[in-house]
Amino acid sequence: MRPPVYGLLAEFENPTALAAAARRVRERGYRRVEAYSPFAIEEVNEALGLHHNKLPFIVLCGGILGGLTGYFMQYYIAVWDFPINVGGRPLHSWPSFIVITFELTILFAAVATVLGLFGLCGLPMPYHPVFNVPRFAFASRDRFFICIEASDPLFDRHETAEFLHSLAPREVSEVAH
């Protein structure tokens, strides 16, 4: 069953208040919680228990794939597909393949970083319910928000709202779907 609202959004004025609120929300046992801020705040990540990050692994895979692609592409072309005999010099002249191997490692790893970032964040995302709160436009300027989502097992429209009010926010609003 779909809950009647997406969640409850509380607005704070500064990063300290947001980090404190995030800690309290976690202590209270809420897990489906997201914080929104105009810049990254390490303390909020810690308060919300955001430690796990798959991105470095994705980038490592991209880099390894790039390096292998670079080297074997050159090996295949120079040795099998289009061998050129220059005075009997070896076809598999590996030192001269290093530059392109390196460049493709970087290229693939960088592309993997960006695609991985988009993939893990679910971007591009044309619609998201939090934008239904008009004041959320300030999340990209100078305001800090915390949202407890209705899918959280502990979520109760009135109790959770009361709890959020106890954190001394500027305002608490319901987020429509």
Partner: peptide
């Protein structure tokens, strides 16, 4: 692309 400054996004 729908960036909304979520903490889980900022971390990544």
């Amino acid at each position: 692309m729908g960036w909304r400054g979520a903490a889980s996004h900022w971390q990544k």
